[in-house]
Amino acid sequence: MSDKPKKLALVASRGTLDWAYPPFILASTAAAMGWEVAIFFTFYGLNLLKKDMHNKIDPASNPAMPMKLPFGPEALQNFNLPIPNVIMGNLPGFQNVATALMKKTFEKKGVATIEQLREMCLEADVHMISCQMTQEVFGFRDEEFIDGIEHGGAATFLDFASDADVSLFI
């Protein structure tokens, strides 16, 4: 191993529950490997920096998402509920139900929560950069975000990513 740590540069551009996992899983794991990590949160990804995240999933726009119950007999849990997309997209409150079911499934299967992973990233000194431009466009105030984040734009990210070993847009 060389003395200089490896670097991971991520752009997190989405703010739903399903898309919140990849950046925080990769960032926390890279940090656990001793890498230096920065995540640039832009557009809907800014939601992941909020104190109160309100992460939801949208089954209607993810047709490949399995719809399964996190409780009941095993045969029932393994059954993929055949709910037509048009119903998932139009039934009021369906997003909330699907989000609650997925959170329950994650918990039962032993997956960390987004909040836990984000906390571990902060503990490991992962640089979390808020896209100032998007923040202004969406009207998000600094007080809405967690402590310990940085602010910047494309140049800030590119400066970090310019000598990163791994760069991903999520």
Binding site: S28, A32, K109, G110
Partner: peptide, 10 residues
């Protein structure tokens, strides 16, 4: 499940 075993090991 991933990534908890790695994070806790570290």
């Amino acid at each position: 499940l991933c990534p908890l075993p790695i994070l806790k090991t570290k």
